[in-house]
Write a protein that binds this DNA or RNA. Sequence first.
DNA 1: TTTTCAAAGGAAAAATATTTTCCTCAGGTT
DNA 2: AACCTGAGGAAAATATTTTTCCTTTGAAAA
Lengths: 134, 134
Amino acid sequence: METRYMEYANLLKQKELKSTPQRVAMLGILDRKGHADIDYIYNEIKKDFVSISLATVYKNVNTMLGAGIIQEIKVPYQKSKFEITKHKHSHFVCEKCGEVYDIQEPKKLDVELPEGFEPKEASVMIMGVCPSCK
Amino acid sequence: METRYMEYANLLKQKELKSTPQRVAMLGILDRKGHADIDYIYNEIKKDFVSISLATVYKNVNTMLGAGIIQEIKVPYQKSKFEITKHKHSHFVCEKCGEVYDIQEPKKLDVELPEGFEPKEASVMIMGVCPSCK
DNA sequence: TTTTCAAAGGAAAAATATTTTCCTCAGGTT
DNA sequence: AACCTGAGGAAAATATTTTTCCTTTGAAAA
């Protein structure tokens, strides 16, 4: 996965952020897990960076959110999860295990908006049971 | 609005919860505002119940959530808001003022789910600009 | 009505969660 | 190699939410 690390480093630099081992590791964790909350990221990264501070994880999450490198997903009944920004998509959340999955967004979505409402974008979330939990 | 208070009282009793003036007031605030976060509810209710504890607001929100009387709405970039449970609907969130509006849900929603995913329900949120902010 | 009792309210403390401060260190440029 | 700004770590400060403990009250029963 050497190449991946380089990708993350470049991604950070493109956004005018310093590429640090901690940030690269965080992106690696998010890439592998798909969707992770702060605690997951912190516990995972501690395996490689034993003395990393939780504050660093928070600070990097906020910085990378601000740069648009990652995005926050607010999930019902759970702490927010984060994912690396990619092509627009929707989410499926398993109500058994809580796992979040990316799914393709509906091709079209006709919502009836009252007069004067200007839609900019839509987000769709499906709750249900995932294959592993059936 | 006398009648409304009776409605709230009955609503609580139907769910086996004690009807207290504080709970009735909270429901009244939610009904009037539509969607409110903890701080809004607390600040509003303090006008009538000067010495109410923030803990009481939290406890009642959790209790009424558990009973299904109210529901939590996780809004991007904001603290969670709560609303009285009503017929199923979607939400429009104004990215300028943060206000949440109820809108009718899309008639149909065809999402392509990978094999093995069992959808139970969908939630749609539209971000955009509301009439007041245009 | 009065009595009764579990559940609710209030105050304060505790537990969680997140951000900030402050100082040292390191990434990336000169 | 030297420089400088931004990043990391530790700890403190804030913010948020829950719990504890004791008093009060809603509402059912007597």
